[in-house]
């Protein structure tokens, strides 16, 4: 296994790599569904925040599972309930009803949080600590021994590009620097499960790419990753599966590939200056767009039937491309449908 100790990369574009030995992950078996081990299980979880003035239903009967080694993305608009759900998974918030387990344990038990990493949204490190002191404090609270804390602190600060600033007070860090420190802290005890709430918030593009690399390394090492985000392109690049949350309810849960799967939409490009008869296109429900033909077909035979018709008109076909929907489009489409409903 590689980089749940992602002490193997350095921050920045140079990205020097020096793979080191890494301790093996603790083996845990919770429940086997076919081959995959369920690491995170959410069953009919609801959460209502009550105050004397109003009630907010943050989550309403959400259920899903995340399997070992998976990178799972939770998508949703502002206020959809993403952070609330992650907090419930970490035992920070208690569900009003329903049940969650992480590695088979209820997260309210302290033991369940061992080797679990968490990068909270809008975290506020104690400003009086230096980066190193914060790592030491949270390492001790994680129950690590001093030698391990020292080693991990060095590795991880290097990994997130804070080696030379580790001794500075956190109150003097920039926003992106605290975010990177947060990531280092989350990776401190070589987590088996990593929860990240908006991990790239406030980080520059180079940093974002680096965070993605770190996460992909961790995933390659078998870490289960749970990301909350509304940066869909990022989730698309990192995650295997996503769930879309809307006003506390789960709209859709699917593999990223399934969601963005080549739909039955195709773009057909003809030889320069050739045009298909409009009557033919209308018969297939196709339209011309920027000089291309765009068509949605129920199946492949229909597509080929259209191609035959075009060929019979002595038109030359230069290109046929399946259209992949961007996750963003899928997301916006789903949310719009939901609002309309």
């Amino acid at each position: 296994m590689v980089a749940a100790t992602p002490g193997v990369r350095a921050w920045g574009p140079s990205g020097s790599e020096n793979a080191g030995p890494n301790p093996p992950k603790a083996a845990y078996v919770v429940a086997r569904v076919g081959e995959a081990v369920t690491v995170i299980s959410v069953e009919e979880v609801s959460k209502e925040f009550r105050s004397w003035r109003r009630r907010v239903q943050a989550l309403a009967g959400v259920s899903f599972e995340v399997r070992q080694g998976e990178a799972f993305g939770l998508l949703g608009a502002n206020g959809a309930g993403k952070t609330t759900l992650v907090k419930i998974l970490l035992g920070l918030a208690h569900p009003t009803s329903g049940r969650v387990t992480v590695r088979g344990m209820e997260p309210v038990r302290a033991r369940a949080r061992r080797r679990v990493g968490y990068l909270p949204e809008g975290h506020r490190f104690p400003g009086y600590l230096s980066g190193e002191a914060a790592m030491r404090l949270f390492g001790r609270l994680a129950g690590l021994d001093e030698a391990t804390i020292g080693r991990r602190t060095r590795e991880l600060l290097a990994l997130v590009g804070l080696s030379d600033r580790g001794g500075d007070r956190i109150s003097r860090y920039s926003k992106g620097m605290t975010q990177r420190l947060g990531l280092a802290c989350a990776l401190l005890d070589e987590p088996e499960v990593l929860f990240l709430d908006e991990p790239t918030d406030g980080v520059d593009p180079v940093g974002r790419r680096h965070i993605r690399d770190v996460l992909l390394d961790a995933k390659a090492a078998g870490t289960t990753i749970f990301i909350n985000s509304h940066l869909l392109s990022e989730v698309e690049r990192t995650c295997d599966r996503v769930a879309i949350l809307h006003q506390g309810r789960l709209l859709r849960e699917a593999g990223v590939d399934d969601l963005t799967h080549p739909s039955q939409r195709f773009r057909i490009r003809l030889e320069e200056r050739q045009h298909a008869p409009l009557e033919l296109l209308a018969r297939f429900g196709a339209v011309t767009l920027d000089g291309h033909i765009e068509v949605a077909v129920p199946d492949l035979p229909t597509l080929n039937h259209l191609l035959d018709e075009l060929r019979s008109q002595r038109l030359l076909i230069a290109e046929v491309t399946p259209q992949r929907a961007a996750l963003e489009d899928v997301f916006i489409e789903l949310v719009r449908e939901e609002r309309g409903a």
Binding site: A110, H123, L141
Partner: peptide
């Protein structure tokens, strides 16, 4: 404080 309590409570401490 929001943002700080998360850091402490997400560790394996009761």
């Amino acid at each position: 404080h929001r943002g700080t309590v998360d850091l402490y409570l997400s560790r394996p401490v009761s």
